[in-house]
Amino acid sequence: MSDSHLNQNTSEEKTAQEAESATNAASASEETTKHKTFTRRTVLAMAGCGVAGLVAGGVLASWGVTSASIASGRIEIRTTPTKMIVTDRARCSGCQRCEMMCTLKNDGRVCQHIARVRVWDNYNFGTNPGSGDGSYANCQFTVEHCKQCADAACMNYCPVHAIYASEDNGARMVDTDRCIGCGMCAQACPWNMPRIDSQSRVSTKCISCGRCAEQCPNGAIKFIDWQDIAQKVIDQGVVRTTTLVQV
């Protein structure tokens, strides 16, 4: 075989290798992009368990979330596609700053009656006079948020379909242009989370904006990114980065 043929073959092989390397680099870049933002779904898939499994496995322990703390009623957790919301009654001092800051951000004024996070409702007696909680008993305060139910009663019973699920974070939100202020959402909700604003005459409810957590002086409310939980899952060896499941 002539030298020219050998050089041609070598050149073709080099070109093929460069093309393969470029393809592999593009695939790796695409893989990184896919998992740049972790959601509840991807984290639970990569961990191979549900939220209860993360709790039992100690993944959430650094945020105070353990099986014992949940069983005692001290910790409550709720999840949205983008965040895990943790409330810690032992850290709540009852200052109600969360309520004030919530309405200041969302309504432009301080009006705790329509706050999306609630402390005052159970301030004195806890959830009921015999609960042993609140300022008249053990001074443990109940911090309540919208549960962001998958099958939300507020959304189902709205006669004008003014409540919908946000594409950004999954929170149930009120379309103020459609809301007629009838109060059916508040009546349908088992926890009475939606409220009718007496000034705007429309319903208000928690949209998981996180302002309450940002302003809590004691860290009683935490909005934890699923990205951070994913890193804990990886750090603890629950799953390797090479075994991420595409969902």
Rank of each mutant, 00 (worst) to 15 (best):
G64V: 03
R116A: 14
S72Y: 04
D133S: 08
S27L: 15
I75S: 04
R40E: 14
Y123Q: 03
K83D: 11
M101H: 08
Y123N: 05
E31A: 11
L104M: 09
T127P: 05
K36P: 01
W120V: 15
H113L: 12
C98W: 02
A22F: 09
A22Q: 12
G130K: 00
R97G: 13
N138L: 11
E30P: 04
G132Q: 06
T33H: 12
T37N: 12
V65F: 01
Y123H: 09
R41L: 15
G108A: 02
R91M: 05
S62N: 07
G73M: 12
G108D: 01
C111K: 14
T87R: 06
G94N: 07
E99W: 03
E99C: 01
A16V: 09
C92G: 01
A26L: 12
T42W: 05
L44I: 12
V59Y: 06
S135Q: 15
I70C: 10
Q112K: 10
I114Q: 02
S72L: 01
S62A: 11
A61G: 12
E76P: 01
T42N: 11
T103P: 00
I75Q: 06
T66C: 06
T32F: 15
T80E: 00
P81K: 03
R89A: 09
A25M: 13
G48I: 03
C92R: 02
T103W: 00
V117R: 00
V65T: 03
G132T: 05
R89F: 02
W120T: 15
C92D: 03
T87F: 02
T39D: 09
V59H: 04
I114L: 04
A28G: 08
S93W: 12
T39R: 06
S93I: 14
Q112H: 04
I85D: 00
V65D: 03
F38M: 15
E99M: 04
C92F: 01
D107L: 06
R74D: 12
T42L: 08
E20R: 10
E30D: 13
C95E: 05
L60Q: 05
A19F: 09
C111H: 15
D88E: 02
W120M: 13
R118D: 05
V55E: 08
V86G: 00
G48E: 01
I85A: 02
A28F: 09
K105I: 08
A19T: 12
F125N: 15
R109F: 08
E31C: 04
G50Y: 08
G73K: 13
T15N: 09
G134F: 07
L104E: 11
C95W: 07
S27I: 15
L60S: 04
S93V: 13
K36V: 11
S93M: 12
E20V: 08
K36T: 12
N128K: 02
L60V: 05
T127Y: 11
N128Q: 04
V51R: 09
L44D: 07
G48P: 01
R91L: 14
C111L: 13
A52W: 06
T39C: 05
G132S: 07
C139V: 11
Q96C: 13
H113K: 08
M101T: 11
H35N: 14
Q17L: 15
H35D: 10
P129S: 02
R97F: 13
